[in-house]
Each structure stands twice: as structure tokens, then as C-alpha cells.
Amino acid sequence: MNNPQAPTARKNGLVIQEMPDEVLVYDLKTDKAHCLNQTAAFVWKNCDGKTSVSEIVLQFEKQSGTKVEEDLIWLAIDQLNERNLLETNVTSKFAGESRRSVLKKIGFASVVALPVIASLVAPTAVLAVACSGVQTADSCGTGNCNRGTPCTSCSPACGAGFACGCSGAGATCECIATAGAKTAASKKG
């Protein structure tokens, strides 16, 4: 059954970087980066608010030179929707179905690449140089969590192999190496 919806690709608040077979999209509102593979990128580019899903199917078939199930296009639309890359929410065709069962169904029938959108949250400047996802550069540089601040606000947490050592009245945060008694204070990262 054809679905009458005609989704619209969101363009505002995005930085779009076109590549030969992919599109990279950076969402300025959420600081998330998304990499759309060729199939997902094709669907996104054709979401103009006028073209229905069944028409996108036809365009896709023309471009790829092969017959595809409408579900393949819907799989792309679902992912675009989830990542807030469409102007308005569309009603999923797969409501109630698990992603696994949908993928299984489409995957077997499809000879073209399934739509895939890889996403990540862009790091802050500090996290881009950190030892792990929870440490700051300072904590890398010194192995500690905001050393010098009162124990009530020891954050972010120390990285693997370190624990925030805080005890006694008026103590301040310090990361202590858990393997052995070596403190990591004054060690540089």
C-alpha cells in the first residue's frame, strides 16, 4: 500500500558536506554529526515535501537501475526522522516492528546497500584531547579530577585506573591510581 506522506528534508541549522558517495551533516543545534551513506543520502536529497515516498522509490529505481521495495526507502526515512533530519515528524511505516525484523526482511530482498546513518556527538575542545570520554584535558595532564576543588564537586570522574580520592574535612579532589598507591598528580598527559 502506498503511503501518501511526502517528507521534507531539514536544511536549517545544518552544515552539509557533500562527498562522492556520502553526505556528512552537522547539526548546529545538537552538535551531532551524521554520515549518510549513498542510499540514505539519495532519499534525504529527494525529500522535498512534494515527492511522495512511492515516487522516491521510482526515482531510486531509475538511479540504481534495480527494483527496490518501498520498505527500503522507509528504512532511510525512519532513520532520518529519528535523527531530526526531516522538517516534520513522519509516521513510521514500521510502527510496532523491531528494527531487526525490518532489516532482516529488507536485507534479504535488497540488492542495493541498505540505508545507513552513522552518528556521533561532536566533542568539546577539552574532550577532544582527553584520555577518555569522561576526563578533561586537565585531568589527563595531571591525572586528576578538578584537583583543588572541594570534594563536593569532583567531576568529571577520573579515567580508567584512577579513582577520585577525597577524604577528611576540607579535602579536595585528586585522582589516585587504583593499581598501587601511586598518585597521578603532577603527571602530564
Binding site: M19, E22, L24, C35, L36, L120, A122, A128, V129
Partner: peptide, 14 residues
């Protein structure tokens, strides 16, 4: 691919 590669580089991009 170029896109996958950039996604791998981004976590280290200040």
C-alpha cells in the same frame, strides 16, 4: 570511505 574516515577523526577535532 571519506565519510567514515571523517567520523573517526571528529572525536579528535578540537
Amino acid at each position: 570511505s571519506a565519510g567514515q574516515g571523517i567520523m573517526e577523526i571528529l572525536p579528535h577535532t578540537i
